[in-house]
Design a protein around this nucleic acid. Structure first.
Length: 484
RNA sequence: GGCGACGUAGCCAAGUGGUAAGGCAGGGGUCUGCAAAACCCCGAUUCCCCGGUUCGAAUCCGGGCGUCGCCUCCA
């Protein structure tokens, strides 16, 4: 099934215009995406996982619709926070950044996220940053002040466009910056002068390091050119980060607009408030992955539309784990099914056969993963009804339904990333002792000694397993349902 | 204080003008030695409140109330 990229009906919500618009890239058939990554100074929490998973789905869907996608996601590996933390812990900034970047990549893999095409680091693009700052100085969009370089906000007449805020009001409303080196409180640092003990690089405007915001403009330009089709990040980056990035890119590279669609994801909250590293109320991503497995955490993050706020709790995650179990069970039950050979009867049959199209259509509409899951669950119910349940279908049709289910789950897996394929994460084998108890119980049931059978079941439960009797025999599963 | 977003069943959550998806929890049934799983049936005469536009509004407009976010650390 081939899709013509030019006729696909993808629409995307754009923060700048405040509405959903039909998507079309600057260059037909190709999409350049820049997503703001992290400043690797602390272990990630669930909130950091959201954009990772969302952009994995977006990227994959655009590819599925025929686009050639380039996804760039950066590491801002030199920054105030990093410097403070490194000083506090008595380690080198580069070591701290390297350690947390590596951990971030490992967690990304556990979330079943494909690595972005390019993952640039700010420290490896200092020449690009210097070049941009030089251009801004030449164009008089920036000025130097005691070794610092500031962007002159007054030179961007439309400042406030992205956050849709009044530029003058921002001047008044801005927190008073005690920095007398700035001409305007809204001005922001492009280059920070060298401070002993801090990382620094030589530059035409003196030794120092990049300010926050420039690195993204420079790296996006380096890998994607002057027109970025999709630019993403958390909603909390809209201002100041993305707005500053926008004005400096447009002023420095002379393109406007330099971004087609600004795509911002809603924030993950706990107890009704935003999760953040500084507040330390974030649930540690690594421990959640240990407890629930990649697919469940991933599915939870996709269970709401990406722009909605998402309230995190162990209960919410557990609830999603139970929902996921329905999908996983069908997956396990149809793994060995042969490909579908002919049409399925009835309404349920229609539902099952048309699923791939329904799923893709849901994603066309601003990557509506919540709706995609609804389609998935409806398909699962219809497939189960055909395969087992009250189905009166002949076995040939049932087998065919299994084939369609397998195909559908493969499609859903490709689009949403539902199932782990690596050995290490697969469900661990049932211990021998438990297998022995299952066998003993089978014998007890065969001689109709149900009291003994029930006693053995209790023993199996004591091992943390639950036994299920199916037409194909009895199987033990870990309590809490299938994992990963 | 300014700007923005959101407010849908017990809980989570789709739905942007045509008469309320899906999931979890709960109740009843089928199947089963009993369970589990699966399937079937049951839930908002109604979408925070009040007005307005319209033949028709959860959806558009105005005004309240509430929650959250941003206003130079932030995914």
């Amino acid at each position: 099934m081939l899709d013509d990229a030019n006729t696909s009906a993808i629409s995307i919500y754009d923060t700048r215009s405040g509405r959903e618009r039909p998507f079309s890239p600057a260059h037909p058939g190709r999409v350049g995406i820049y997503v703001c990554g992290v400043t690797p100074y602390a272990p990630p929490h669930v909130g950091h996982a959201r954009p990772l998973v969302i952009w994995d789905v977006i990227r994959t869907h655009l590819e599925r619709r025929g686009y050639l996608v380039t996804l760039v996601q950066n590491f801002t590996d030199v920054d105030d926070k990093l410097i403070e933390r490194a000083a506090r812990d008595g380690v080198a900034v580069s070591d701290l950044a390297a350690r947390h970047s590596a951990q971030y990549l490992a967690l990304m893999e556990r979330l079943l996220v494909r690595p972005p095409d390019i993952m640039p680091r700010a420290t490896e693009h200092v020449p690009d940053i210097i070049e941009l700052v030089s251009r801004l100085l030449e164009g008089e969009h920036a000025y130097t002040s005691h070794g610092d370089v500031y962007f002159q906000v007054a030179s961007a007449p439309d400042y406030g466009l992205l956050p849709r805020r009044d530029a003058e009001a921002m001047k008044v409303g801005a927190r008073l910056d005690p920095n007398p080196d700035k001409r305007d409180p809204r001005d922001f640092a492009l280059w920070k002068r060298q401070v002993p003990g801090e990382p620094s690089w030589p530059s035409p405007f003196g030794g120092g390091r990049p300010g926050w915001h420039v690195e993204c403009s420079a790296m996006a330009h380096r890998y994607l050119g002057t027109e970025i089709d999709l630019h993403g990040g958390g909603l909390d980056l809209v201002f100041p980060h993305h707005e500053n990035e926008r004005v400096q890119s447009e002023a420095g590279y002379g393109v406007r607009p330099h971004v087609g669609f600004w795509v911002h994801n809603g924030l993950v909250t706990t107890d009704g408030t935003k999760m953040s590293k500084s507040l330390e109320n974030g649930a540690d991503l690594a421990s959640l992955l240990d407890r629930f497995g990649g697919p469940v955490v991933r599915g939870f993050l996709l269970s709401a539309h990406y722009r909605s706020p998402l309230e995190f709790s162990i209960e919410a995650l557990s609830e999603h784990a139970r929902a996921y179990e329905r999908i996983k069970r069908l997956y396990l039950a149809t793994r060995d099914a042969a490909p579908p050979a002919r049409d399925l009867p009835g309404e349920a049959g229609q539902r099952v056969m048309t699923f791939p199209d329904q799923l893709l259509r849901a994603l066309d509409r601003d990557f509506n993963t919540a709706r995609a899951f609804a389609e998935l669950f409806e398909m699962v119910r219809a497939a189960n009804a055909l395969i087992s349940g009250a189905s009166s279908l002949p076995s040939r049709d049932r087998e065919n339904a299994r084939g369609f289910a397998r195909r559908n789950l493969a499609v859903a897996d490709a689009a949403l990333g539902l199932f782990v394929r690596t050995e290490g994460e697969e469900r661990s084998a049932v211990p021998e002792e438990v297998e022995a108890l299952v066998e003993a119980r089978r014998l007890a049931r065969r001689r109709h000694d149900f009291a003994e059978a029930d006693r053995l079941r209790e023993q199996i439960v004591a091992y943390g397993y639950q036994v299920e009797d199916t037409p194909d025999g009895s199987v033990a599963r870990p309590l809490g349902g299938p994992r990963g």
